[in-house]
Design a protein around this nucleic acid. Structure first.
Lengths: 229, 229
DNA sequence: CAATATATAATTGTATGCAATCAAGGCATC
DNA sequence: GATGCCTTGATTGCATACAATTATATATTG
């Protein structure tokens, strides 16, 4: 079975690289030489790889400097904060239309995600918890039924994912977050848009405050000095 | 003087293509074969052109179908409406921080843009008017001081630019729009965030309502049938 | 004549070679 | 010994050749 089909090497490369960056396998600021990556993603030639770089650059995940190649985009604390503020705002925009438009079926699905998230919380499965948490928020935004909004929200989440995740290692916040999620679901079911918006706002701010302190000192080394060999 | 310097053919191609698409030289849904473009942008080889496609695809300006090449992204009426709604929301998010953070210098600059816009309005210089109008809104958003917000706002504006422009040909809206802009500037100077937000909201909705009707029938042909040869 | 199958042309996806640029180290000079 | 220049190696940008896929036109058959 020759895996050598025509038509998706670029996309595959982009997907794998995105995964690596978003999951944090590649450090921010780190240089990604075509050579190094091709050793990991064997059998890949330069052209699709370079096209993949361009795709990821468009998503803000890598930064390309002319004649100097690609690096994993390193965000400053200010960049991350700006983006968090934007995400809060986007969820706020989604709240009322989501309450108006959401189907019972969708609420059930979100509750299911929530149950799985609680299970992951009990099992202390960090990654799973984080993923489901994000998925729930995305689903709420999606429920607003605005494709442009959903797209932007997803893209911006991906961009700062690793920074938020870095602050997720401490459990103390989790139980409160779970409680907040339950309130959020409650308002969604009651279709109370304005309260949902306020709750999402508070939820985000609470979470980010914890995260910010945890990652604060991490920035000292990673960000100011873009990269070192 | 050989123009054959190394390091920016891809970017140049992307810029020129973007210009063409945003300005409306290429119709939505139209196929962009590598061949055809290379005839216009002479001396360009396939590699940088294809990389430019990927960049523009990331910006949502072109759509790439595997093994079938690139087309100018054709948005449905629903897509444009979603995006307009998002833009309203983003301006709303910007309003209060903008009032808080804007410098007098920046207000002066925006007023200058406004004066130039009024002049273009009087001279009935369609394009100039439209450009300045957009620039003013961008500057207000920028004044909020959130880079992520500014970036998204600019990108989404570009994505639907040609659709909004299509409805800009009728003058009857212009005088009202100018008046609204003056109110907007007033609230900005007064640093009245909530009124600014409401005004921006109303301004957008008024403008879009006119535009929507004007472009309504244009969609019948362009959109439902993506392209035909 | 319609419909399908097949061959052929056109177009896109990928690999690779060459040119230009950048980075590092050695050498000469002060 | 330090500093600046030049050479050399590595890396990126671009052009082009080749492979795979899709579209088109023709022929064949019912």
């Amino acid at each position: 079975m020759s895996e050598t089909k025509h038509g998706n090497r670029t996309q595959t490369a982009a997907d794998r690289l995105r995964q690596m960056i978003v999951a944090g396998d590649l450090a921010p600021g780190q240089r990604i030489s075509e050579r190094a990556i091709r050793e990991h993603l064997e059998g890949l030639s330069r052209t699709p790889l370079r096209e993949a770089f361009k795709i990821l650059a468009g998503e803000g995940l890598v930064t390309i400097s002319p004649n100097r190649g690609a690096t994993v985009t390193a965000l400053s604390m200010a960049d991350v904060e700006d983006t968090m503020e934007l995400l809060v705002g986007l969820e706020g925009l989604a709240a009322e239309p989501a309450c108006k438009n959401i189907l019972l079926q969708e609420i059930v699905e979100i509750e299911e995600l929530h149950q799985r998230m609680v299970a992951a919380y009990r099992a202390e499965e960090l990654m799973e918890y984080f993923e489901l948490n994000q998925a729930i928020h995305q689903r709420i935004v999606d429920a607003a039924g605005n494709r442009a909004l959903s797209r932007i929200y997803a893209a911006e989440c991906a961009r700062i994912r690793r920074y938020r995740f870095a602050g997720n290692r401490h459990h103390e916040r989790w139980d409160r977050a779970v409680a907040e999620h339950e309130q959020i679901l409650g308002f969604l079911k009651d279709r109370n848009g304005s309260l949902l918006r306020e709750m999402l706002r508070a939820h985000y701010r609470n979470g980010w405050q914890v995260t910010r302190e945890l990652i604060g000192w991490e920035f000292a080394g990673t960000d100011q000095e873009p990269d070192r060999k």
